[in-house]
């Protein structure tokens, strides 16, 4: 109960802040790249913080249904366009047909041998064949995308979140070539006709910029857990990888976990319990 009321208070506070034109959600989209994490912290005492954010996904707990809910809530709250959505011809006349290969996704289901191609095995345990593996940005400790970006539009916050400034991105797509996990999408076209309902807490993007999972930085800033965690029924946990007492570290201590293509040295911050 306590938690609930605190949340609704925060929502009100958040809305008030939008009124003032200084919403924390918009903050990370500003051009002030380095100070962002601190600025958010400074503005909101309740913000969830970490030295290095990480995520544990318990694949045993993920069902098709839960996976579906997770992708849906993530994409809805972040105004990720859905190319299957029927465009409103009145609002967006002359919308051209879509090319599904140009789709945008932040978190999605993959089969085991796509999520972990380097672990491909003829005699793989049966259960892995049908399990949905959720994949998303790994918020790599040594992120190749950050290194590649020529404008610092993709950057790493002090708390380990790899995040983007959509207003600075020039759309060179160097980061997409650099990401070894296919976590990034490019707005080949204006995404707005394909957003069924625009979520007011998060900016929509323009054409020509790259985007990807931001670990719900806007939620953390409000003191709330990422949307995927909230609907995951305990299958996804986020927390501080550098705090030995954190939930996530305890999970890592107790379970055997794997990360995607570890041999590359990118140090992904997303762990899978298998």
């Amino acid at each position: 109960m306590m938690k609930k009321s605190r949340r609704s208070f925060l929502k009100v506070a958040g809305i008030a802040a939008i009124g003032l034109g200084a919403s924390p959600a918009m903050n990370f989209a500003s051009s002030d790249s380095d100070g962002t994490a601190l600025a958010v912290k400074g503005k909101n005492e309740q913000a969830l913080t970490a030295h290095r954010w990480g995520m544990v996904i318990d694949t045993n707990k993920i069902t098709e249904e839960i996976a579906g809910k997770i992708t849906e809530v993530c994409h809805k709250t972040h105004n990720v366009p859905d190319f299957k959505h029927d465009v409103d011809p009145e609002k967006f006349p002359k919308t051209r047909p879509v090319n599904h290969k140009q789709e945008i996704k932040w978190i999605w289901e993959e089969e085991f041998h796509y999520a972990f191609p380097e672990k491909e095995d003829e005699y793989l345990a049966e259960k892995f064949h049908d399990l949905p593996f959720l994949v998303t940005c790994n918020h790599c400790k040594n992120a190749p995308c950050v290194q590649a970006c020529p404008t610092q539009a993709t950057f790493k916050r002090e708390d380990g979140i790899v995040i983007m400034d959509f207003h600075r991105c020039i759309g060179c797509r160097f980061c997409m070539a650099a990401c070894p996990y296919g976590s990034r999408s490019f707005n080949f076209r204006d995404p707005r006709p394909f957003i069924a309902e625009t979520h007011p807490d998060f900016p929509t993007r323009s054409k020509g910029v790259v985007e990807k999972c931001n670990l719900c930085a806007e939620q953390l800033a409000k003191g709330e857990l990422p949307h995927c965690v909230q609907v995951s029924e305990g299958a996804i946990v986020v927390g501080d990888l550098e705090d030995p007492e954190s939930d996530i570290r305890i999970l890592l201590k107790e379970h055997y976990t794997i990360r995607r293509n570890q041999s590359l040295g990118t140090e992904p911050s997303v762990y899978y319990i298998v």
């Binding site: 950050v146 290194q147 590649a148 970006c149 020529p150 404008t151 610092q152 539009a153 600075r168 991105c169 020039i170 759309g171 060179c172 797509r173 160097f174 490019f186 707005n187 323009s206 054409k207 020509g208 910029v209 790259v210």
Partner: peptide, 29 residues
């Protein structure tokens, strides 16, 4: 070719405004 490949060509100068010495594209330019 670089210009026509950019998603946001009007922002091309960001490469100069925010020089990023770790990015190979910076040196290429």
């Amino acid at each position: 070719f670089i210009i026509v490949d950019l998603g946001q060509p009007t922002r091309a100068l960001n490469v100069l405004l925010y020089p990023s010495p770790k990015s190979m594209l910076f040196y290429d330019m």
